[in-house]
Design a binder for these strands. Structure first.
Length: 479
DNA sequence: TGCTATTTTAA
DNA sequence: TAAAATAGC
């Protein structure tokens, strides 16, 4: 009598170094790789359109990888995962189910509820560590509490960093049953009906092979100059691995191993600033585990009283990249076109929305959620709360980015702005980040009429900065 | 992972 | 005169 094991894949869409796959294969006779599409279970944070596009292609790639090894990926859809797992376990006679843990509030609740019910059914459940270097509860402060400050968290984490042993992808897998009423990836309807996704297809290769290729290219290339170039949105200086990491097409353990195998140390030298960015991802999961309400509510409770001013017109101008502030518009257009935005520009764009325009950070988080291919609830929550000033940030002052200054510092040639705001292409570098300050003759020569070819700025940066600081003053001394 | 006003330094 | 350093939020 051989065991039949269901491998419940969720956000670990790879074959190499996949702990749930390894666990499922140990002692299994038959393996049933399964993806279940249950958007209703993700509650308010079900995948947005860009994320669904990525998921479609990642599932298709994973199915191909399974088929190359003699297996296949089964796909189901339903109102809840438990019903589908029960149906398929019964149909194929499975006695055991393996999966990698998830950590968001809704997915955690689903997994806990599902595990309880499956165990009551008499099925064995093996949940293994998710796609992180540290489980979110692994690290604690001296007082045995959660960290709220990244530097303290990471200082501690680095002392615990070890070099993982990576399990290669299996070269052959046992055949999977083909008679369980499984759907094709296409039938999930994840792709957009209106074909707005050509820019995404041009920018990305979802799936494990694409993740591996990008990781190698990054580690053998831009990693060496990461410290100097990562903040330049006009330069290909970052890893652009975030969507691959989100869907678990590659894991941070694999990246750490690849870096070490190139002879680099993790906590100093050229690799250190990149490994630190992986640390921010870990910290985001630490925070969402310990403070699950922060997906929707500020970590800093004083911000319940912050005077946001909700304005659909301002929000819409920001979303569409029509604020009249070039760096911000470039970023939001890059996002719309490619499903991704350079992190430096994310910070500047989020600062403009939450501080200068004083729109609630949740509105920006929601827009990013719908448009980013790397939309990740832990990282998105941390990023927006950090920029809004209501999250885990050790700075004692109210940080407000000046998008002109950010542009001049990090896009000094203006090439990034020119790429995404072509109507400004002929403006000289001196004025590219503040066209409103250019003399009339310069604008004429560049073929720009402000207010028609390109918007006048929708906000006075200096005045709105003062107002935001005043708003901060009204809440900062609360108990 | 900031900004700005002010002071200091260098040419 | 302006770049660089510093203070303070």
């Amino acid at each position: 009598m051989v065991d039949t094991v269901i491998l419940w894949l969720r956000r670990d869409l790879r074959l190499a170094d996949n702990p749930a796959l390894s666990r499922a294969l140990s002692g299994a006779g038959r393996l049933v790789p399964l993806y279940i599409h249950c958007p209703a279970e993700e509650g308010r944070w079900r995948a947005g359109a860009a994320s669904r596009w990525w998921l479609h292609h990642s599932l298709a790639a994973l199915d191909r990888a399974f088929r190359e090894r003699g297996s296949r990926l089964l796909i189901a859809r339903g109102e809840d995962s438990l019903t589908e797992l029960r149906r398929i376990a019964t149909a194929c006679g499975a006695t055991r189910i393996c999966w990698a843990r998830r950590y968001e509030p809704a997915t955690r609740a689903t997994d806990a509820r599902t595990e309880l019910a499956l165990r009551a059914d008499g099925l064995r459940c093996d949940s293994v560590e998710g796609n992180l270097l540290f489980e979110p509860w692994d690290l604690a402060t001296e007082a045995n509490g959660p960290y709220r400050v990244f530097s303290a968290y990471w200082r501690r984490a680095v002392t615990r960093l070890t070099l993982p042993v990576i399990e290669p992808a299996p070269t052959a897998l046992p055949p999977a049953p083909s008679d369980l009423g499984a759907l094709s990836v296409d039938e999930l309807g994840l792709l957009p009906r209106v074909r707005w996704d050509t820019g995404l297809a041009h920018a990305w290769t979802p799936g494990e092979d694409g993740a591996q290729a990008r990781a190698s290219a990054f580690i053998d290339g831009p990693l060496a100059t990461y410290a100097a170039k990562r903040d330049r949105p006009g330069v290909l200086g970052t890893s652009r691995l975030s969507p691959h990491l989100h869907f678990g097409e590659i894991g941070p353990r694999q990246l750490v191993r690849m870096i070490a195998d190139r002879g680099l140390v993790l906590d100093e030298g050229p690799a250190e600033p990149y490994v630190r960015e992986l640390g921010w991802r870990e910290f985001a999961y630490h925070l969402i585990h310990h403070f699950p309400h922060t997906t929707d509510e500020p970590l800093d409770e004083r911000f319940a009283a912050f005077p946001w001013r909700e304005d659909e017109t301002l929000l819409a101008a920001w979303q569409r990249g029509r604020t009249g502030i070039p760096l911000i518009d470039a970023g939001l257009r890059e996002l719309w076109k490619t499903g991704w935005m350079h992190n430096r520009v994310r910070m500047a764009a989020a600062s403009l929305l939450t501080k200068n325009l004083r729109q609630p950070w949740q509105a920006g988080a929601r827009w990013f959620w719908d448009t980013l291919v790397d939309a990740d609830l832990a990282s998105n929550t941390l990023g927006w709360q950090w920029t809004a000033g209501c999250g885990a940030d050790a700075a004692p002052y109210f940080r407000i980015f000046n998008p002109v200054r950010q542009g001049e510092r990090f896009d000094p040639t203006g090439d990034y702005v020119r790429r995404w705001c072509p109507e400004l292409a002929r403006l000289p570098a001196r004025f590219i980040h503040q066209p409103w300050a250019a003399p009339a003759g310069v604008l004429t020569d560049a073929g720009i009429r402000l207010g028609s070819d390109y918007p006048q700025p929708i906000v006075d940066l200096a005045a709105s900065r003062r107002e935001a600081l005043a708003a901060w003053e009204t809440i900062k001394n609360q108990a």
